[in-house]
Design a protein around this nucleic acid. Sequence first.
RNA 1: GGCGCGUUCGUCUAGCGGUUAGGACGCCGGCCUCUCACGCCGGUAACACGGGUUCGAUUCCCGUACGCGCUACCA
Length: 475
Amino acid sequence: MSKVRVRFAPSPTGYLHVGGARTALFNWLFARHHGGKMLLRIEDTDRVRSTPEAEKAIFDGLRWLGIDWDEEPLFQFQQREKHQMVVEELLSSGTAYRCFCDPEVLAQKQKELQKSGSKWGYPGTCRELTKDQVKDKLSAGDPFAVRFRTTEGVTQFDDIVHGSIEINNEEIDDFILLRRNGTPVYQVAVVADDSDMKITHVIRGDDHITNTPKQVLLYKALGLPVPQFAHVPLILGADKKRLSKRHGATSVTEYRDKGILAQTMVNFLALLGWSPGDDKEIMSIDELIEVFDLKGINVAGAIFDETKLEWMNGQYIASFSASELWDKIAPVTQSYCTENNLEMPERSLGLQLADLYGERLKYLNEAPEKMAFFLSDPATRDEKGVRKHWKEDTPEQMKRLLEELERTEEWFEEALEAAIDIVAEEFNVKRGKVIQPVRLALTGGTASPGIFAVMTLLGKETCLRRIGHAIRNIG
RNA sequence: GGCGCGUUCGUCUAGCGGUUAGGACGCCGGCCUCUCACGCCGGUAACACGGGUUCGAUUCCCGUACGCGCUACCA
């Protein structure tokens, strides 16, 4: 295969959502797999909707995911003159013609035709104007658009994902190339730019399938080589409708802000609509690059399943070492502490916390809340838990435990275990009966890491204080 | 409406003419256990429908239904 060159071509009209991110990812994986180039093109020809903020958001999203690009991004609007020249070329070769029809009249006709159920198509009014007629209108200053002269026949192209796709040219209207205001239309821009950028493989969303024949027609009319196409299925919302900003098209950075890891996102997105063909699920970026193949792309749309994303994120979090994890959760912990006026834990404590919570987190951002009782005495207590675990004889047991703990000099797990066992034995109950009230006292809740680890990290003074406080305040 | 593309467990998917239709998430049991989480074991659950082709169709072809997409002088 000749040098692979692919491109991701977003319009900067909003953030980078998961659909766009996946398209970018597929392009990137393909390029990296083949040692080719990944290019970026900003399709900013819609001057009204394009914003620099959106542009930045897209760059940020890509960078976060680790999707890098080669060469300088191309800004489509800056290519405008080239696009106009392409139209000129088409005009002089006769594959395009000037259309002097009034767009409003045309729109009116279209409306009528559609209402009556017949097929709409440009009636061809200006298709066969003679040179003189054109010259007259031109010198009269009549405004015009430029249309492509679609001829009879069938347009066919091979899609790597879908196989051969063909469409009867009757279905392709004499589409506009250049608007009355002189600006070239999208179809012209893509073809010209893809050609300029020497794109070998156009990997983009399914929604472009019906545009492709028009583009193929343009490539041929211009005598340009037609690139390979791979139309990837759309990512769907829970309602199976195309993901849009109205429903569920979440920005990738929103996931980042919730505490989804970039590698989770990449791994998950890669598996949405693509499969390596085996049962592998957790795959590193390098592995993905290694095995990625356009042939593995699915044909049907895929629903974005957040539950599985959560699971996968949990898997990655659990695979981290304590120091890796702490590095990831320290920032959120820091802001949590600042917000709540708490002291930020030292790294040494942080590492121990990370160790405790590695297998208990689905999102990075859950960390501060889950670890909150390590940062300050619990302000509230789980009422249901109290009712369930704080019985009449509990205060008595707790008082005994307090005594045992007070005399515990060496504050480490085994010693604490022994202390609790002594009390359990005295009252002839299972150790769990003693532990749950302790957990309530120490953490305010009914779920936490192992109680001995919690006590060890909390330290003697804090444990005694909280248990004492619970005895005095519960029941 | 027209055209295009699609349709395997609830979800993501494997399958590429002969399989007890496999895996993963979820869910439900169980084990582990001081709770939670992890882990482990087990279970639930799918080839949209109808015709062909074939000795044999989830797999190939054609219809139907349904879904999605496109149908702009947006991209």
